[in-house]
């Protein structure tokens, strides 16, 4: 279980880490704990998979690539067959089954903006099912916070 210090760390670490030589020491100072304690707790939270990853969040679009949320309405009787075909495309990053007629929701990640349409068309050809594309127009983000 997480104690109050872990929760404070988790909330703080979802914000930006400074670009300084000893960034963890700076965060530890802010939180009033030792750097070694911070690093040990972060290590434990990573081992326990409370933190799935710690590091830079890259923006594929800013690197010249693109992301796009897509959805398909896959009939139940073909579900596994279609799923195998969809997931075989390396551009398919995350893929979730959801409770809706549009029941398969995945993110395409490609190295060029044109790659999105190409990948979506390839999936449509493989499966015979329309791929609806929902690219982000605006992002309104703040992040998740645990009760501290």
């Amino acid at each position: 279980m997480l104690d109050d210090t872990d929760r404070a760390i988790l909330n703080r670490m979802q914000d930006d880490l400074p670009l300084t030589s000893h960034p963890y020491a700076a965060i530890a100072d802010e939180l009033g704990i030792e750097e070694s304690d911070l690093l040990a707790r972060l290590g434990h939270m990573k081992e326990d998979r409370v933190i799935t990853r710690f590091g830079p969040f890259f923006d594929a679009a800013a690197m010249g690539g693109a992301f796009c949320l897509c959805a398909m309405a896959v009939p139940a009787q073909e579900f596994e067959t279609v799923l195998t075909k969809v997931n075989a495309h390396p551009e398919v990053a995350h893929n979730y089954e959801r409770t809706h007629r549009l029941n398969v929701w995945f993110v395409l990640a490609t190295e060029t903006p044109e790659g999105i349409a190409t990948a979506a068309e390839a999936i449509e050809r493989d499966t015979g099912i329309t791929v609806l594309q929902f690219p982000k127009l605006q992002e309104f983000f703040i992040g998740f916070r645990v009760a501290a």
């Binding site: 670490m13 979802q14 670009l19 990853r53 710690f54 969040f57 998740f144």
Partner: peptide
Amino acid sequence: MKSRGVIRRIAAAANHYKL
């Protein structure tokens, strides 16, 4: 890279299920 938006932030990704 941050100023150009290639890096959005350097941070932890929390696992909601584990929380």
